[in-house]
């Protein structure tokens, strides 16, 4: 009986706080994506404008570790029995990837473009029988390039 109560408490805690955290995170992602929309990140190896000479380039990376809440873990466990898409994990990975890209962009706010963007996902401590932490790490990295003429905000202070 006791374990059932603990289980239900954990489930409801996970549901409430997980939902709140996800909503908050998505709002912050949308706001920051709008701010950084002028810095495009592409998976191409050449810049989109060939004519503009490049002054310098650097490697930038951003990463984040996000865990799934207890309720979603249970939901995914149930889904595992019947099969089908696990929507709760889809949003988790979507959030992690967008956050990683945003953090990478925030490291080079004055860059003009990011080339050869690569995204790598790895799950942390999966399957360890002792600690079952359902968390993913997403790493985004690319080459930030700066065009020769200074960006408008710098040349006209």
């Amino acid at each position: 009986m006791d374990s059932l109560i603990i289980f239900l408490v954990l489930l409801s805690l996970g549901y409430v706080f997980g939902k709140l955290a996800e909503g908050r995170h998505y709002r912050s992602i949308h706001a920051r994506e709008e701010m950084l929309v002028r810095l495009p990140a592409t998976s191409c190896k050449k810049p989109m404008e060939h004519s503009i000479p490049i002054s310098h380039a650097e490697l930038v990376h951003g990463h984040v570790v996000i865990s799934v809440d207890y309720f979603k873990q249970m939901l995914a466990g149930l889904r595992n029995i019947f099969g089908g898409t696990i929507q709760s994990y889809e949003t988790l990975l979507d959030r992690a990837r967008r956050e990683a890209i945003l953090r990478m962009k925030e490291r080079c706010p004055t860059a003009n473009q990011i080339l050869n963007l690569r995204i790598e996902t790895s799950s942390i401590s999966k399957g360890g029988s002792g600690d079952r932490i359902g968390a993913v790490e997403v790493l985004a990295y690319g080459t930030a390039i700066y065009f020769q003429q200074a960006s408008p905000s710098l040349s006209h202070p």
């Binding site: 996970g14 997980g18 955290a21 984040v64 570790v65 865990s67 979603k72």
Partner: peptide, 10 residues
């Protein structure tokens, strides 16, 4: 991990 969200330490 119960509540979900970013694991800042990691």
């Amino acid at each position: 991990n119960i509540f979900g969200g970013e694991l800042k330490a990691y």
